[in-house]
Amino acid sequence: MSKGNGFIFTMDAIIALVPVFIIVASVSTPGTADSIALQSQFLGDMRKGNDILVSMSAGDAFDTANSSAVNETLGSLIPPNLGYNFTMTYDLNGTESLEIFNLSRGNMSEAESVMEAEQVGLYWTQEIVDDVHMVSHNAFNESASCAGDAESGNATYNMTVYVSSADMAEYDYYFVVDKDDTGSLAAWVQTCQFPFCTPDNDGCEDISWSDITIPKFDSSVSYNMSKYYFSKNYLYPDSVNYVYVKVTGSGEYADFYVMKALKKMDEDFVDPETARNPQVVFVSLKIWREE
């Protein structure tokens, strides 16, 4: 039985308002403009990131081990109101990777959203500076020994290596011997500042053949490659270095290399085969706007 009161505030009316509110809420779509503006800004930053990577690649800006130079270029290209993180990594063997650059500005944790541009590029993590190939011990002993050069005034077999101070700060230099097959072979190396060496090693500072003897090769070992790390004492910065090689053995042949590799790279990964071509690296640039 009805009490005779109006029912405008009854449960019926309240229930009836539910679909009304749903309709109103669904058509008013608050925040659409903001979300579209944010999306547009995000896409704009993405294009910016891709442009920067492609432009830097076109300008050979990655072809340096000097991280401050790369950072300076990034700093000039990326507007100051944006933070960034730039990384370049090289896959060493499928399981290990070498981080060549990791440069940042700003604080990524304070970013509302982070845009990432990626690129695959080429980079010299290690490089052959000079080489001589298929040299037998006989040829060396006969014509390229220091005593022999003193008479002729020239060395027949040598490698010419220019080492800049900047490169010396970023790279390690190695003398690498890659013997072709088994057998006993020993090699010696000497660096000089002049394109000849003399019996008493004038012009070659204190270095002598015996000072930096490459480990003798032995048929019992399973590998044919040996590396010698040139310490700073044996290379003259901002100067041409003449690297002389002498071998003794039982008629074996070998290839000799002077190589440079990033200081971050473990000596085990220094390999002339890898160093013949630029290595594939993965480049990533993250850009963000901080709150």
Binding site: R47, D51, M56, A58, G59, T73
Partner: peptide, 13 residues
């Protein structure tokens, strides 16, 4: 947009 420009030995972004 960004790009790289070179003119002989002169270069700039």
């Amino acid at each position: 947009r960004f790009a790289y420009l070179e003119n002989g030995t002169n270069t700039t972004f």
